[in-house]
C-alpha cells in the first residue's frame, strides 16, 4: 500500500489521525524512537474526542524538536521565537477569547529561556493548555545540559555527569497556581489522551508534562539504548499516584517516575478576574470583554 488510504474492496479507510495533520509534511523530521510523534498522535485523538470546533483551536510552539508540532498540525498554528510561545498564546487568547489556545513545546523552550513567561501565565491563570514534552535535554542543538537533566546524567556540556539540581516541573506549575497539573510518560498513551481531553475542556492554566525519550542524544550519551528501551523503562519504573503532593515528584536518573493527575482545582481566570474587577469599579459603564465566551 503506497497511498495514504487503504483500499479494501472499494472501501476507503484512513488513519483516524490523518485529518488532524498536514499530510504533505509527513514523514516528519523526528528521529526513529522519538516519542514526540506519539504525543502528537494522542493530541490528535484528544482533539477528535473533545468535539471542539477545529477552527477555534490554535497551536503555538516555540523552538526545538517539540516546536515542530505547530507545523504538523492541521490547525491554525504559529511557530514563535525561542521561549516565547506563552506570551504569544496569551496575546492570541486575549485578542480572540473564543479560541482555545494550546502551547505545545519542549522543556528547554518553556522552562529554560521561557521560564519567566511560564511562571507569570500560571500566576495569572491565563486560559491556556500547556503541553511540555520533557526529554531531559536540548535535542535540536546537540544534547546540551537542560534545566530538566537529572543529576548524574551525562550531556555534551557535562561530560562527567550533571551535578546541578533539575527543575521539578509539576511542582513549579502547582506553586505558580496552575489549575490542572498532570505528568505522564510516552508509555501512557491512553492517559495522555484523557489528560489532554481534560486540559482542553478546563478553563484556566492547564499544564501537562510528558516524559519522552531522546534516543539520539540523551539515551546515546548515557548508554540507555534505543527509544523503545526508554519507553520500557518508563513502563517498569513509573508509579501512578493521582493527587500526589507535587513536592515529592522529583525525577532522578533512571529512578522511579511518579505519574498521574496531581492538581485539578478551580480558580478565577485572568479574563474573568478583569471583567469582575472593572465591573465593580466602573459599574455599568464597563462592557465586559469576551463575555459571550465567559457565559458559555
Amino acid at each position: 500500500m503506497s497511498t495514504e488510504q487503504a483500499v479494501l474492496d472499494g472501501l476507503e479507510i484512513d488513519n483516524p489521525v490523518m485529518p488532524y495533520l498536514r499530510k504533505d509534511r509527513i514523514p516528519h523530521i523526528w528521529c526513529p524512537g522519538c516519542g514526540i510523534g506519539t504525543t502528537v498522535n494522542c493530541f490528535a485523538r484528544a482533539l477528535g474526542e473533545s468535539g471542539l470546533d477545529l477552527d477555534k483551536v490554535a497551536v503555538v510552539s516555540g523552538i526545538g524538536c517539540t516546536g515542530r508540532v505547530a507545523g504538523y498540525m492541521n490547525l491554525d498554528s504559529f511557530h514563535t521565537t525561542h521561549g516565547r510561545p506563552i506570551p504569544f498564546a496569551t496575546g492570541l487568547k486575549l485578542a480572540n477569547p473564543e479560541l482555545k489556545v494550546v502551547v505545545y513545546s519542549g522543556d528547554g523552550d518553556l522552562f529554560a529561556i521561557g521560564g519567566n513567561h511560564f511562571f507569570h501565565a500560571a500566576r495569572r491563570n491565563m486560559d491556556l493548555m500547556v503541553v511540555c514534552i520533557n526529554n531531559h535535554t536540548y535535542g535540536m542543538t546537540g544534547g546540551q545540559l537542560a534545566p530538566t537533566t537529572p543529576m548524574g546524567a551525562t550531556q555534551t556540556t557535562m561530560p562527567y555527569g550533571n551535578f546541578e539540581q533539575p527543575f521539578n516541573l509539576p511542582f513549579i506549575a502547582d506553586a505558580c497556581g496552575a489549575v490542572y497539573v498532570a505528568r505522564w510518560t510516552v508509555y501512557h498513551v491512553k492517559q495522555i489522551t484523557r489528560a489532554m481531553k481534560e486540559g482542553l475542556s478546563k478553563r484556566g492554566f492547564a499544564f501537562i508534562e510528558i516524559i519522552s525519550p531522546c534516543p539520539t542524544l540523551y539515551s546515546r550519551r548515557n548508554r540507555l539504548g534505543d527509544g523503545v528501551d526508554m519507553v520500557k523503562y518508563y513502563k517498569e519504573k513509573s508509579v501512578i499516584k493521582n493527587g500526589a503532593n507535587t513536592k515529592e515528584v522529583d525525577l532522578s536518573f533512571q529512578g522511579e517516575i511518579t505519574v498521574g493527575k496531581f492538581v485539578d482545582r478551580e480558580r478565577t481566570t485572568w479574563l474573568d478576574g478583569m471583567n469582575d474587577h472593572f465591573s465593580k469599579v466602573f459599574g455599568s459603564k464597563f462592557k465586559k470583554y469576551g463575555v459571550h465566551h465567559v457565559e458559555d
Binding site: 476507503e12 489521525v17 509527513i26 514523514p27 523526528w30 522519538c34 498522535n41
Partner: peptide
Amino acid sequence: LYCPDFAIFGVKYEDIEKLRQDAATPVR
C-alpha cells in the same frame, strides 16, 4: 495510538463490516 510516525493503524473487522453496509459514500 503508539506509532510516532502515523504509519500504522488497526481496524476491527466489525467496523469494516459496518462501513461496507454504508459503502455508498466513502467513510473514514
